[in-house]
Design a protein around this nucleic acid. Sequence first.
DNA 1: TCCAAATATGTAATCGATTACATGTTATTA
DNA 2: TAATAACATGTAATCGATTACATATTTGGA
Lengths: 334, 334
Amino acid sequence: MTKMSDVAKLAQVSTATVSRVLQKPETVKEETKQKVLEVIKKLDYQPNILARNFRRLETKTILVVMPSILNNVFSQIIVGIDYEATKSGYQVILGNTMQDEQRALGLINHLKQKQVDGMILLTARLDMNELVKISKEYSVVLVSDFLENKNVLPTIAIDNMKESYRITEHLIKLGHTKIAHISGPLDMSMSRDRLSGYQKALMDHNLPIEYGYLEKGDYSFQSGYDSMLSLMDLKCPPTAVVAASDRMAMGAVKAAKKKGVQVPNHIAIVGFDDIEFSKLFEPALTTVAQPFFEMGKKAMSILQQQIAGEQINNDIILLKSELKIRESCGFNLK
Amino acid sequence: MTKMSDVAKLAQVSTATVSRVLQKPETVKEETKQKVLEVIKKLDYQPNILARNFRRLETKTILVVMPSILNNVFSQIIVGIDYEATKSGYQVILGNTMQDEQRALGLINHLKQKQVDGMILLTARLDMNELVKISKEYSVVLVSDFLENKNVLPTIAIDNMKESYRITEHLIKLGHTKIAHISGPLDMSMSRDRLSGYQKALMDHNLPIEYGYLEKGDYSFQSGYDSMLSLMDLKCPPTAVVAASDRMAMGAVKAAKKKGVQVPNHIAIVGFDDIEFSKLFEPALTTVAQPFFEMGKKAMSILQQQIAGEQINNDIILLKSELKIRESCGFNLK
DNA sequence: TCCAAATATGTAATCGATTACATGTTATTA
DNA sequence: TAATAACATGTAATCGATTACATATTTGGA
């Protein structure tokens, strides 16, 4: 393997000069530079990245931590991250926690061991104290979920409360008064925000908040299915359901169909996320489309600033999302 | 940051001994070992991975190259890879080619620059000569797709021909005689195998192979949709369609519905892959389930053997897949 | 008890790029 | 022309773990 000293020897310069040609070309005389570049090409010299990383104590690699890449929502964010990362020569390492605390801690260790220059979290479900500590010492950005203590680390997300409010309001405007909610796990800030938005919409329109109309799911298809079965068993079942994810909405629709209840004729069901399959689903889901790609891009770009040592304020950056009105809410406007 | 020499000093030994405690503990006297381990714990010493990588000229990192992580098929394989990789301390780097030759070459460069110890390809759509060359020099494993020149690099896949044969035969046994095929891009070995299986099934059952019954898609929903429209426009349209992917099958179903043709009543449609939504789709897709997780695991384990320098024969390893008979083929056996 | 073999540990070179600092060279100005 | 600034290049230390080789210590056998 050709190394820098080989290039230096053949070009009759020092390794320092070769290095400068590569790092700060403007500090090298044109003539020398040309000579060195020629030799580099001739010997097909490639710098040893491992040596470079070691010397610089950086890896040009970032870690993305998420529950599982199987969830298409995360894949979409990752594509945005990857897009931005590639532009500036960063590599992206995958960290599936599989909801396992132990795995998550192992991943965080990569940061401590300087195996990666920074970390993007696609969910905040880690030990809170640990996270706060970590984010003080290393470059970390949070996407899509929030942290209890705001302003601890930069966060990219959408305004879950507002969007949840909007989609609930949409149902109200369609005439629904008995609206249920299938929430995500309430230890997630995101889930609570979506719940709040739903509740606020009801209150603002003078509708009662029925305790029985709140079902707690976990964003999975199955939990949507089960929750819907419970809702339909109520003495006075809802005529509309706001699910906190498309997967749960799909589960709910399937449950309704199973019981012979038609969507949207008998009951309106809306979701959240706008995953790939939502428009193919029958009925096509009315939902809130998140700008996943943009979120990923933005997160990566903030992370890079952090890594570069720029002063970052730990603001929450809210990106714009879009209400997608399709069939599952009834009154398809298409 | 504590370094090895700090530990050595405090433990009153040389760095060589500290290193040995970590690398080859059995060569160090019990007493010394204990002393060193104590100091390591006391100082919370973590070896500098960058220095180690540099010295060893390895990264404990592997690269997964695929068209796009958005495709759930790839995510599933990756989970298998990641599972196996994590077990032995490997990291997984994502390489989305986005179907862009340039990006693909950039990724391969990571191998050449020793930024990764090995590479797993989730598709063979790269420059063939380059690939053959690369695979001679570096550790590379191919998953799911095949290479023209067999036995160039280890390959993990399913028997596409056989499975395509089986699912086609299933339609024949249901009484269909006019069966069309929507293939993948025919520059992929995988696509050609699925086509061959379909053709062989027809021939073995003395059915004619109509040229008009072959539509070329690209595995996408849209191409399935478009292909189906063409098929329905034929003078004598097929009564069954074998699509080479579930996405295309879904596209085909949607196209059929759009034209008022019922599935499976008027026409049977089957797919390939068994992606997450295939069972939620209406009608639920009859399809071939691939053991993605296992494929990923196996690929990673072979790759590790290669990296470790073991002699690998470039066999094709075929894993077992399963015919999932659901609604879209009619005669639901459930 | 003595010596060879087996163990245990230390010394110092090494991996290859980077960079602070020193030195050398050219351009600029009075 | 001399003095200084500006530019160009070289020297050599550095990053921190690993390991070949050298040296020291212990063990076991005769």
